[in-house]
Design a protein around this nucleic acid. Structure first.
Lengths: 120, 120
DNA sequence: ATTGTTACTATACTAAAGGATATCGATATA
DNA sequence: TATATCGATATCCTTTAGTATAGTAACAAT
């Protein structure tokens, strides 16, 4: 019952390709996902700590986006029974491995900017 | 006057990092950019050809997104004085080189899906 | 008793993205 | 003369994303 489609097969079909890339994009889309991931890249943090880290985010958005990231297996949420209560957020291993992809995006972005500027 | 910031320096600063990655994301964001790029990845195409390639896109969106991609140095637009008029769209070299990044995203997306499914 | 902290939630709103539908100008074909 | 093609644009409308502001429960310190 191995109905998995391989990397090569997906690459060869533009529609499958676009769908699969979109899977990745959907995980990081929206205005705040990347800043949140950035904030958690080097260490786990608590809610208010992330908030301080991203000055303009509202608690509503932070809460919503963290839930989203958690649902998508990007973030692990741990509640500690301290007083007052404390909650820690950390990236999953899979999320951490995204930083390689982000590096590629960064690299391409810099190159592209160069190319566009020099070519105009 | 070399005030360029290097890859390493950007990577080291979470805020710069997020901003630079966002540059790349902004180039491919929205519902239709990726399908359009996908449609142009292997060959240049004309307006109606892309439209047929992406059945659900409206001409309004296709026109808008193509302009956007052109402005961002992703697409080159060439008008031919045929009857009726024909216009060809093709990816720039820089845009073509994005496919390496997209491959990375695809790869990560598949891995991540595996990780999330097996870990739940 | 009042104030503060943590980690949120609720309600209401505005802004941005995208969809539906009609139309255009030039020209060809039936 | 009527209809079709190409490459769009115009107008209006809906849906989604994000903002603003206030409030909550549980407790602790002053």
């Amino acid at each position: 019952m191995d109905d998995k489609i391989s990397f090569k097969e997906i690459k060869a079909c533009p529609i499958q390709f676009v769908l699969a890339v979109n899977d990745t994009l959907n995980v990081i889309n929206g205005k705040w996902k990347l800043p949140i991931i950035g904030s958690l890249l080097f260490k786990k943090r608590r809610f208010t700590e992330i908030q301080r880290n991203i000055p303009k985010i509202t608690p509503r958005m932070l809460s919503k986006e963290l839930k989203d990231l958690e649902m998508n297996g990007m973030v692990k949420r741990t509640v500690y029974d301290t007083i007052p209560i404390s909650v820690e957020y950390e990236l999953t291993d899979s999320a951490k491995s995204l930083s390689d992809v982000l590096d590629k995006m960064l690299e391409w972005g810099l190159q592209h900017r160069e190319a566009v500027l020099s070519g105009s």
